[in-house]
């Protein structure tokens, strides 16, 4: 039939074009990713050394290292996690184990966290400045930065933990109940250990988010690059250090490259670890 042959070739051409375009897009994205990474490595590797990690910054960060910055970052992270984890995990346990999905209480809490997840980080910064720094009088300090970050981490920690708990098969709960174990004991000895990899993965994702954060810390934990003496001192986070070096310090590019390389390496290893843990455990739910 003479008419079907042109149609088939037309289809073939269309298929090939579509496939070609898709491959092109993928190639483009991969190329840009590789470009970005090689740029960072090339710019940062020369300046990176053991001394860079163990010395404090001098001359606004142009020389010296990032030791005090790393300490501040770690302290901010610890404050954020210590505050956020109890709240997030108790919410997750309640939602997954005790409260029906359709109850009003569950719906309200879930809606509130859903909205919170969408709040832009600069708005968290404004809130943190108004509430923690000024209203509670914590000033520009590691504590107010960490508490602001804790608010930011609540939704992601809760949703990953809830997904992890829900992934534990119901047979566990039923068997525990059949054996007359209280729900508390079942939770502590059975369900939490079973969900531990998912909980850890969620925790690592949260750590990644916290390390990457800049805008929320701008007016809460402040700019000071000295070694912090207490939680009420101002301390500069690593991401903020990169921002400051590249925008406000002429000649700070080398140190900024090296700091960016440190940050990206940290985040990549944390994320890879999280992926490994989450793999096979409701992976899709946890990663998105």
């Amino acid at each position: 039939m003479p008419e079907t042959i042109p149609l088939q070739t037309k289809q073939k051409i269309r298929d090939c074009t579509a496939q070609g375009l898709i491959y092109l897009a993928v190639l483009l994205v991969s190329a840009v990713f590789v470009w970005l990474l090689t740029d960072l490595v090339r710019g940062g590797i020369a300046h990176l050394s053991w001394a860079f990690l163990t010395e404090s910054p001098h001359d606004a960060g142009r020389t010296g290292g990032i030791a005090s910055i790393l300490v501040s970052t770690l302290l901010i992270l610890l404050v954020a996690l210590i505050t956020a984890i109890p709240l997030a995990w108790s919410t997750a346990i309640l939602m997954a184990e005790f409260v029906p999905v359709e109850s009003n209480f569950g719906k309200t809490v879930r809606f509130s966290l859903y909205v919170l997840a969408g709040v832009p980080s600069i708005v968290f910064g404004l809130f943190g400045n108004a509430f923690f720094s000024i209203y509670l009088g914590l000033g520009f300090s590691i504590l107010s930065g960490g508490l602001t970050l804790a608010c930011m981490l609540l939704p992601i920690l809760t949703s990953t933990a809830e997904a992890g708990l829900r992934a534990v098969p119901d047979t566990y709960r039923l068997s525990a109940a059949a054996l007359g174990i209280s729900r508390t004991a079942a939770l502590i000895h059975l369900i939490m250990p079973a969900a531990a990899p998912a909980l850890t993965a969620g925790l690592l994702i949260g750590v990644g988010r916290a390390l990457a954060e800049t805008a929320a810390l701008l007016f809460t934990s402040g700019y000071v690059d000295r070694m912090p003496g207490s939680l009420l001192d101002s301390g500069r986070a690593l991401a903020l250090h990169i921002f400051d070096l590249s925008m406000n310090v002429p000649g700070g590019d080398n140190a900024a490259y090296a700091s960016a390389l440190v940050l990206v390496c940290l985040l990549l290893s944390i994320n890879i670890l999280a992926m490994k843990l989450a793999y096979g455990l409701q992976r899709r739910k946890i990663m998105t």
């Binding site: 994205v29 990713f33 710019g43 390390l211 990457a212 800049t214 991401a239 990169i242 590249s246 990206v264």
Partner: peptide, 18 residues
Amino acid sequence: ELLAGIPSVVFGFWGLTT
């Protein structure tokens, strides 16, 4: 997924320098 984990300040820095 790794691209999703790169912080915004690093994207900004790369944009600024490259």
